[in-house]
Design a protein around this nucleic acid. Structure first.
Lengths: 240, 240
DNA sequence: ATAATCCTATTGTCCTACAACCCTATAAGT
DNA sequence: ACTTATAGGGTTGTAGGACAATAGGATTAT
């Protein structure tokens, strides 16, 4: 039995990345400063250059380091934005309504863009998601997943990865919040899902027909009714 | 102004990481699923195994992937939803345009809601932000901060904390990307800021007048022109 | 039936080589 | 004198090969 059987020792790239990050956090390396060369870092840490590259690649992904080929690697001047919502705050119904509204803004517009841009493959994925909703037992949590999948398929149809990521993020946040705050989430959401198949079908039909205005109206109507079913009233009466 | 002035094509590890992430986001890979082997991924993407390793290392750093030596790499079980965009991927002009579009959807709708809901205190904050833009030396990065502050003040006027947080997140992401990919960001953005004071004033005036349609139109116009100034054309011709 | 050993598959690390890019100094042209 | 082009050296980005370390399943021994 060795110590590291208790938990896996981090691999070298992870450890090197942490060491470099420490230099930055302790301000021995400041924004704009140039790191030693990859080879010099490899020499001083006693590892291969590949390991250093992986470590730097991690920090680059986090936006902490920026590399320029032929020049060097530098400490970035600005931090990377991250969006995360306080799960406890969302237990408050008014906070949840605000989140729902944010999601509505995105998804209503996404439906319009999907109607305009969707490819046949994306439409097929939307149809599969709709079929999955029809086949879902109303008392199973699969109803939630199918609903989520439908909305993601719509967002996918926009052809914009950031819309898709934002919708996925928000949908997941809504789902997690409902699952964590409802007494009997599956039963309630199962009912909701059955009622809304017609609404989803209307969205699907408009996207299939490549009718942006109709898709937008159908999504607005669906979101509005979904909010009502959850006990909220959203302001969607203005043109959206 | 050329499109490629925005910066370099992302390197292979970043692109491969995005592709793998796409598989996960689109649920072709689900939590607990095992990825193809590194060599198989290298073969199918047509890159060396080192590149695949760097890509996976990035995703491991983000907690999205977990690797077990001798076994394989697996999609991690879902944790708290987090939204963060790969800083390097955004150096790609088409990715940046997609981000800009996402931001546009939110901010245009936020202007309408702010016109309807803003309080006198929030209007005063908007006025201060506008004044700050007027007083800003056009060659200083303070112009960027003032612009950001104006947009945050608009989002604050919606009375929806999640809209405000999302707008802040997206605005910051746009700002960071511009600052990191432009040869002389301060000079260029300073010029942009001066040109747009009239546009911002129109937004402010509509919000002060509590005219949602006019606020929405003013923001759409501003976003549309801002995109043009950055070399993009957004699809905002549909009703939003 | 259980434990030990073996074998295969896969990740983790190292090494070498070369492409691509960047910067600076020098040479050539105007 | 000033501008432009070129060469050389340095550094990152990628490819490919080799072997170490780890894990899991199959086989063999008790």
């Amino acid at each position: 039995m060795k110590i590291d059987a208790l938990g896996r020792t981090p691999q070298l790239p992870s450890r090197i990345a942490s060491r470099i990050l420490q230099e930055i956090v302790e301000e021995r390396l400041k924004p704009g400063d140039r790191l030693p060369t990859e080879q010099a870092l490899a020499d001083s840490f006693g590892v291969s250059r590949n390991v250093v590259r992986e470590a730097i690649s991690r920090l680059r992904s986090d936006g902490i380091i920026q590399s320029r080929q032929g020049v060097g690697a530098f400490v970035a001047r600005t931090a990377v934005p991250t969006l995360r919502f306080d799960a406890e705050a969302l237990a408050d119904p008014s906070a949840f309504q605000a989140l729902f509204e944010l999601r509505a803004i995105l998804e209503i517009r996404a439906a319009s863009l999907a109607a305009r841009r969707r490819t046949p493959e994306q439409l097929a994925a939307l149809e599969r998601a709709l079929d999955r909703m029809r086949g879902t037992e109303k008392w199973a949590s699969g109803g939630v997943d199918a609903d989520l999948e439908f909305h993601k398929a719509v967002a996918e149809g926009t052809g914009n990865a950031y819309i898709r990521m934002a919708v996925s993020f928000l949908s997941e946040q809504v789902r997690v919040t409902i699952m964590e705050t409802r007494a009997r989430p599956e039963a309630e959401l199962g009912d909701i899902v059955e009622v809304t198949i017609a609404e989803h079908a209307a969205i699907h039909d408009a996207i299939a027909a490549q009718d942006p205005a109709r898709a937008q109206d159908a999504m607005a109507r669906h979101i509005h009714l979904a909010a009502l079913r959850l006990g909220y009233r959203l302001e969607l009466t203005e043109p959206v």
